[in-house]
Design a protein around this nucleic acid. Structure first.
Lengths: 126, 126
DNA sequence: AATATGCGTAACCGTATAGTTACGCATTAT
DNA sequence: ATAATGCGTAACTATACGGTTACGCATATT
């Protein structure tokens, strides 16, 4: 298997990104691989706390580790972020619309009628 | 205040996206505003469960609601996703690098030396 | 050989999720 | 006026976080 494109669990990826500390760890690793202890020093929480964050990041395949003597070097693996990026892609065109226009549209009578229709013709629920 | 650019809590945004059901709700709302009940019908979980998801999405400002008779219309607000997008931006260039090259680099003796240096010159810790 | 260092894990705690069922309050329909 | 509908919330449960301290095991140092 050479360079076969790998799929990761989008679920794990989003979950891993939910915590600000973990995002900060990734940001840190963008500057280069670092051993676990050095990563921990960058944060106000205890080393075991970081160790657990690293475990989640590992599960999400957002970092890879390799033993280097008694150190564990952590390296960023941005590949799973591609899934996040492509999920976001579908939304980009939305914020490219003028949101002010959207707002006035929603508050218009036209939208109101659409809303009523959506409600009165649920086309489900009996 | 007219169209003043609003900032949202990135924290809340990422947290809201962590759950697959909530992401699916957003995906659903991309097709158009819907009342809460209709949203709930699209999922295998109970209506109150969806109601709670909607609460989190509201807190994250990813949806807006408005009373429409006895219905509550939910509408997508993609604006907070811009923060996610810009966080991701810093990573895009990484997955544009050839990851195979990166891998061989990391495993090279050169990287090994860098790694050792990083360890032996922590430039912190006493 | 003995000691120090790096780092993961276990055990424990408080809080937030994610789901459930039961309930209550408006609004609409009859 | 009464009944039905739409939907949020309360109360409860199980699980997962995020943090802590204590511990243990390799690897390095002296």
């Amino acid at each position: 298997m050479r360079n076969r494109s790998v799929t990761y669990s989008t679920e794990n990826t989003f979950r891993a990104l939910a915590d600000p500390t973990r995002r900060a760890v990734l940001d840190l690793l963008r500057k280069g691989s670092q051993p676990a202890g050095q990563i921990a020093e960058a944060f106000p929480v205890s080393r075991p706390a970081i160790s657990k964050h690293l475990r989640l990041l590992r599960r999400a395949h957002l970092v890879t580790e390799q033993q280097r003597g008694r150190h564990r070097m952590y390296q960023l693996n941005p590949a799973p972020l591609k899934a996040v990026d492509s999920w976001l892609a579908d939304y980009r065109r939305y914020w490219q619309m003028n949101l002010a226009n959207l707002k006035t549209f929603v508050e218009s009578e036209y939208a109101r009628e659409l809303g009523e229709n959506a409600v009165k013709n649920p086309s489900s629920k009996k």
